[in-house]
Amino acid sequence: MIQPVIIKSNRFGINLKMDPDMEFRDLMTEITSKFIESADFFKNAKFAITFEGRELTEDEESEIIHTIQMNTDIEIVCVMESGTAEEKRMEAVVKNIIEHREVPINSEKNITPTENTIENPYELASIYKGTLRNGQAIDSEASIVVVGDVNPGASVSAAGNVIVLGSLKGNAFAGHNGDDNCFVYALDMNPMQIRIADAIGRSADNENGLFKGIKNKKKKKEESITAQIATAIDGRILIEPALSQLFDRI
């Protein structure tokens, strides 16, 4: 393993993957610094935690939880058991998908949330709560959900999809590892720039992101704002209303 400690997010919360051979003391130092690094990202989120990679005694587990809670605002609500058959299967599928860079398309047959999660790694999402302001940038190796606005000059970047439950007025970058099947979704789509894999789209010059909002305020109040979705088609960014028939395609 290259890194002795890896923090991954899964649908329950976070998964702490640890080097199996390292001295526990050294490992603790790694864990502490890792969480201090990402404290800003997780903020005061409530998480379940799973341990992976090595067998831990009860004391060791509680020591890890203690260090997380001392050094970040994260609240660990429970410890999930790891190594169950289901998770092993999940890991295998995720690995397979990452290696082949293929995103399975949801079929009508497997719509149960559990199986969805197994098949599509990008349905694992980090959640950011709050407004991202000018100069702030967040990044995730999964998908990312922003519960709040992304202001001009702020940027959201993810290996998977970018979902903004608010107004997207800054930059969004989906599929930053090169997957052009990823999408950007926003309740109010008014971005300065959208990138999906290698495709770049920018706002039209006459309605600059910064001031469009001011000018159209009146108009917007009358019309209802429709959620929109951006996808990459032949290297170009296409933004369209997020209607139900569209979900078959992504």
Partner: peptide, 17 residues
């Protein structure tokens, strides 16, 4: 650096890569 504005004044803020 950190407080850029020339791009906005020139109307080029949406082209920055």
């Amino acid at each position: 650096i950190g407080l850029r504005n020339l791009d906005v004044v020139l109307g080029l803020e949406n082209r920055i890569v």
